[in-house]
Design a protein around this nucleic acid. Structure first.
Length: 416
DNA sequence: TCTGGGGTCCTAGGACCC
DNA sequence: TCTGGGGTCCTAGGACCC
């Protein structure tokens, strides 16, 4: 069995901790530039201000209902999140931190008589020790635990799906768009086929499901049927990608402003990179007019580093080169960002670097940089031979760069 | 005028290899 | 030297999550 511990209106709850007078008053937390709602108290939900909605469109309602607004304070939320996680860790080490306000717990190693009672106790303990109200759902799969925790919000904040009857009862009342994994695209598609409730999905034939879904959807339905198909993540603290980006809140045309933003993002991203002890091999720089512009434009570029690096100065330099390549003074940008891709563990970078031999277009550059690598690592021996290739074959295969064959496996570093 | 900032996983199809 | 067809790797982009 799995538990999902889900913080109620998390950011709002954090702010209320320091402003107890705001309990039971309408409160919302806003995104960067105070652009849109990212957390709402129950009172604000009842007023009808939607999640993610732009604040300027709801000025009237905010004033009329005397809604208290906060600019987001992610340091505070991160700190409160850690406190909740440490309470859970004291119960069992088998937890998966899913997001800043959600945590899965594997209950299989715990001696629990009654799941409902356990959930109530843990919920009370978190509220006592941290002051944040949470909802706890317990079920045989992660997706069902999610269903349970959502349903628990109207039933005192703790709910265990420990019988099939309970499971079916909940699925009967669950609209498909509220299922974890059903989004904007899938929901209308399913409704067109006459499927609007989760129970219909669970009762559908395997043949029909195979027609409608890819493997992702099949797994989702299995999870709803009580068959665990999602791995219990060993809460990786090393990300596969690191992104820093920001909307400006107004249109930016001046190159120096973009330059300053991009170098800041590159620096911040490289700090994250060092914290997780990784190297980056590819840097993506992007500029965008934002998705709400009449005419949306998006420009991005990949900067591939021949030698993976962790060095802030090099990352900034490379990012600015990328910016220079894509900058087009003709239109104004609303947003900019830097993404670090192809992250490698710092201890094993030589291996992954060398074994990437199918990146043919990088080969030429690699050959040129081999000298410096030889100097740096001393023992690297390598060789490459260029095969003669006739012009016809070349154009047929649409090869843009000469073809090389390199005996990477002769590198002593791979054997070591 | 002003509409978040992160992430993950999967797939289709091209690139590449034998 | 023949230049096909199938397997595999890689990438961009989509869909989804909070």
């Amino acid at each position: 069995m799995y538990a999902l511990v889900d913080c109620n209106n998390f950011f709002v709850s954090c702010e209320r901790l320091f402003r107890p007078g705001l309990r039971s008053k309408p409160v919302a937390v806003l995104s960067n530039n105070d652009g849109c709602f990212i957390s709402r108290s129950q009172e604000v939900k009842d007023i009808g201000l939607p999640m993610g909605a732009p604040v300027f469109k709801y000025k009237q309602a905010i004033k009329a209902n005397d809604v208290t607004l906060f600019s987001a304070n992610f340091e505070l939320y991160g700190d409160m999140s850690q406190r909740i996680i440490s309470v859970l860790r004291s119960v069992t080490p088998l937890i998966e931190v899913y997001s800043i306000d959600e945590c899965f717990v594997d209950l299989s190693q715990l001696a629990i008589d009654d799941h409902q009672t356990w959930a109530v106790a843990v919920r009370e303990r978190i509220f006592q020790e941290v002051g944040i109200p949470v909802s706890i759902g317990i079920a045989p799969t992660k997706t069902l635990a999610k269903v349970a925790s959502t349903a628990s919000k109207k039933r005192g904040g703790a709910l265990a799906i420990d019988t099939d009857d309970k499971r079916l009862e909940l699925l009967q009342d669950l609209p498909i768009e509220d299922i974890w994994g059903v989004g904007r695209q899938l929901a209308p598609k399913l409704k067109d086929k006459g499927v609007s409730m989760a129970l219909q999905l669970v009762n559908a034939s395997d043949g029909w499901l195979k027609q409608q879904f890819t493997i992702v959807g099949i797994k989702m339905v299995d999870e709803l049927r009580g068959i665990a198909r999602l791995p219990f993540g060993d809460s990786k603290d090393t990300r596969g990608q690191i992104m820093r980006s920001r909307s400006f809140g107004h249109r930016v045309r001046a190159y120096h402003q973009l330059e300053s933003a991009v170098s800041t993002f590159a620096a911040q991203a490289s700090v994250k990179l060092r914290e997780q002890n990784s190297l980056t091999h590819k840097i993506v720089v992007f500029l965008s007019t934002g998705k709400h512009a009449m005419e949306t434009k998006h420009a991005s570029t990949d900067v591939v580093l021949i030698e993976p690096t962790q060095d802030t100065a090099r990352i900034i330099t490379a990012a600015l080169e990328g910016l220079h390549d894509i900058y087009d003074g003709d239109f104004a940008y609303m947003k900019a960002g830097v993404i670090l891709h192809d992250l490698t563990d710092i201890e094993s970078w030589q291996l992954s670097f060398m074994s990437n031999e199918s990146r043919r277009d990088e080969r030429t550059a690699l050959m040129q940089s081999m000298d410096s690598i030889n100097k740096q690592y001393g023992t690297v021996i390598w060789h490459a031979s260029e095969k003669p290739i006739d012009a016809d074959w070349h154009s047929k295969k649409k090869l843009r760069s000469p073809r090389y064959t390199c005996a990477w496996d002769e590198l002593p570093i791979l054997r070591g």
